[in-house]
Design a protein around this nucleic acid. Structure first.
Lengths: 211, 211
DNA sequence: CTATAAAACATACTTTTGTCTGTTATCATA
DNA sequence: TATGATAACAGACAAAAGTATGTTTTATAG
């Protein structure tokens, strides 16, 4: 390729590699080479080596397609969106799955699922009807956490409190009352860790990734 | 490895490969082999071949790490979260990147990025301070869309309207006024297609992938 | 203009990885 | 228990991809 000013091709190559990595398609050195019309493998490799030295890329030496963005410890997975609240805390797989959404995971085995919000009892907390909440089901619950609770077979999203050994489920909407269920008639499905709202229709519904 | 009932290892391998692909780390045949403690490469390869034949995987023959999920029409990519609003619509890469979040893509080249919400002018629309909005920058804008607009070098999120050739940017908070900027002092950065709120601290912040 | 550094090139070599041919063991079902 | 199908194994070869050494060209600064 034509000679460029120092750093120019370097940056272009970084952009290229980053895009490929974000697309889940790590490139080979030779793919970088041809993408930039270079006549020598080493031209691409020395740029990549420099990017690693600068800390802009990380590599796994010897491995093919071994360049990565630094600090990619946490990766994304697809979590199922459940149409209904799961009956028990552990039988998520059986429920009807509305679709999948990508979720960031920092550790390994976590039971996270999406749930479509029904009603506006949490309106003032910015959780609206139709939103999707991400729920981690095996989380510890603390004061003030927003939880998905099951009372008499009915699921609700409320803020959890416990005052004088009395459980309180507080809505964020003045039109709704604070609930004080007895422990035996209450099941905490999980803790809401994220709220998502799609302002534009997106086909969340993947074909079943059966297996 | 020990012999299993027909289909069992097949499914486990599919899960493994799918996970690796969703994580942006396409495996080699030999990586599958060792992950399942197989003593022959062919053991892994025949399973992978079968998965391709069943249509559960797709491959690029001869290429290393060449297995992919079929119908990658909508797969998830990592979109950058920008600390500031990008100056122009097309130079996202230059801006400072706060981190990355997984986003669903239905087609190919789309310019989607995340943006941290500053202020509560859209409070009544359930868009709170600190939320992350996903912005598609080259979208067509219609009446009622929520947009990211730049007025005099300052970025705001508002609802877009146009009445009698007069542009209106409407907040969703009675404490804020409706803005009516002249077209020449207004730049529409893009359209808000999704709102996300993390109720639990998640380390989105990757080290600077500056470029 | 000259010296130094960066960029690009050419070629060879090594390792990784995909692929092939054939064999043995286990499962499923009649 | 006989039989076809699936699973797992073994070893070898070929292609893909990483790496190394040295040279030529261009940019930048004094």
């Amino acid at each position: 390729m034509a000679y460029t000013k120092p750093g120019v091709t370097r940056n272009r190559i970084f952009q290229f590699v980053r895009q490929r990595l974000l697309d889940g398609e790590p490139p080979t050195v030779r793919e970088v080479q041809t993408a930039f019309h270079m006549r020598a493998v080493q031209s691409a490799k020395s740029h990549l080596d420099a990017l690693v030295k600068e800390g802009r890329l990380v590599k796994m030496p010897g491995k093919s397609r071994g360049y990565r963005l630094p600090g990619t410890a946490h990766s994304s997975r697809l979590a199922p969106i459940l149409g209904r609240v799961p009956a028990g805390p552990f039988n998520i797989a059986v429920e009807e799955i509305e679709g999948y959404i990508p979720v960031r995971f920092n550790s390994e085995e976590q039971t996270v699922f999406g749930l479509r919000v029904n009603g506006d009892s949490m309106m003032n907390a910015g959780i609206l009807h139709g939103d999707i909440v991400l729920v981690r089901s095996e989380s510890e619950i603390h004061q003030g956490d927003i939880v998905v609770a099951m009372i008499d077979g009915e699921a609700t999203i409320k803020e959890f409190h416990c005052v004088r050994n009395q459980i309180q489920l507080r809505p964020h909407n003045d039109a709704y009352p604070i609930l004080s269920p007895k422990p035996e008639e209450l099941t905490i499905i999980g803790k809401v860790i994220e709220v998502r709202r799609h302002l534009e229709a997106i086909s969340l519904i993947d074909e079943e990734l059966n297996g």
